[in-house]
Design a protein around this nucleic acid. Structure first.
Lengths: 257, 257
DNA sequence: TTGCTGTAAATTGTCGACAATCGACAAAGA
DNA sequence: TCTTTGTCGATTGTCGACAATTTACAGCAA
């Protein structure tokens, strides 16, 4: 028989997971720089594990988009071009804005409290060194927002961009010094807007959170927000009940507490 | 500087790629059924390769969403619930419909010819056995459509759902017998609509292609299409030029230095 | 019978070694 | 001098063996 999958906290420990975290951290903190080549043998020596483990960790990193691998040409840390960064922001904004709109009604007090906790945690990050932690908190924050849509698929799709978001952070730190206060401000503003009774305000906030340009003409953004606004209600009507049903019977979804 | 990309037949061949294709084919054709457990040792014996190779192939399959793996609990073929299937269709429709709208102007005669070729190839598939080929052609067909948006990120995101689409095909074949003629019809209608001068017609077609329900109220779909219609032009305005530039200068695409 | 416990089998995780391949440099020829 | 070819070191691909873990099952007691 299968044991209930809700109580497996013992944290199944594999070396791969350790190595993965180690490398992720090194990349996000800038110890390993974008474009740099990762060599299996060297890392396996340095970390005291076999090459097999490092190899699998590479595959995990690649799935997250933090490295790219060409079959016999080595593995390199992802470097995002400006176009890719813009593109990424737009796509992610599209998904997340959509999610927030669908799940707007499900953002209750408890959720807000969790979001506020995230922001507080962000404020405690020291910027040059603790970027990995900052990225994790950032992901957690937005995860809560996206999860409100109660669409596993949408969440998975959004999650697949997480690693790239890390790459985006690196890019930001490479080009210009960012202040932790600024990051906190951004998220506080976002949270405030999302909590607004008017869904449209939340949408716009999500969008501007990702797609910010110095002298942008806001007409483009407005068009997108309008679009999502049109999508979401019908989406909710079609799937709201089923989604809720799925969510309730699932059980293994974490963070239910 | 640029080598003509027409003469690259050598096709980097790794065992992993072979094994991956082999397993993918077996899963899509139904030789290995949804929910079934895949055992490394057995497959490595059966295929005449080492377990390491099978293991890596599993990771590739997992990334495509064709299998799920719990750390020390084995690897199983993905089985989609009805809710997941609906959800998947909606999300994919959202992305693809958006892409088609953005790239509508770039669908020229040559593109249409390629699409028609795909449909012709579909017609030559024998259904119970050649599902893997059918799925590949189907993916190729829609890939052409999505690629017209010239957004690498959007394409990547869309691609990440390909494996699941395969799973969807399996589901369809499990529950009800589908006729190849039906599939061809669907795509012919889709192509015709996409070629229409009116973008809206193409959008609607893409949507109905994925999200088809017996007695659906079309108002929901209409709202979504309207939304995408609002998104796309601004997106194109913002990114059209840059995208084109990226696409032209890309060429190498990898950081081989 | 039911439930528990410990042993054995099956399966996955990790390892180090060997083979295949790539990139760079040097040597040979025009 | 420039191009081509051969060689070598570095790196990745593949392998079979061993260790760790999970699962199945038999035996025993209440």
């Amino acid at each position: 028989m299968e044991d209930a999958p809700k109580l497996r906290l013992p944290t199944r420990l594999r070396l791969v997971d350790d190595v993965y975290q180690s490398l992720e951290s090194a990349i996000l903190s800038g110890q390993i720089k974008p474009g740099e080549r990762l060599i299996e043998a060297r890392l396996s020596l340095e970390l005291g594990v076999s090459r097999t483990v490092v190899r699998e960790a590479f595959l995990m990193l690649e799935r997250q988009g933090l490295v790219v691998n060409n079959p016999r040409g080595g593995t390199f840390v992802t470097r995002l071009s400006q176009q890719e960064a813009y593109d990424l922001g737009y796509v992610r904004a599209l998904l997340e804005s959509f999610a927030v709109t669908v799940g707007h009604d499900r953002i209750d007090e408890q959720t807000v409290r969790r979001l506020k906790n995230c922001i507080a945690d962000m404020g405690r990050c020291q910027l040059p060194l603790e970027v990995p932690r900052l990225v994790h908190i950032d992901v957690a924050f937005h995860h809560i927002l996206v999860d409100s849509a109660r669409s596993a698929r949408l969440l998975a799709l959004w999650s697949s961009l997480n690693g790239q978001i890390g790459a985006l952070y690196i890019r930001g730190l490479e080009s210009q010094q960012a202040h932790i206060g600024h990051v906190v401000e951004l998220h506080e503003a976002l949270l405030k807007s999302v909590c607004s009774l008017d869904v449209a305000i939340g949408q716009r906030a999500v969008f501007e959170h990702y797609v910010r340009r110095p002298q942008a003409d806001r007409s483009a953004d407005a068009a997108i927000l309008l679009a999502i606004n049109a999508i979401a209600p019908s989406y909710a009507d079609e799937f709201g009940d089923r989604m809720r049903a799925v969510h309730n019977t699932k059980g293994d979804a974490d963070a239910s507490k």
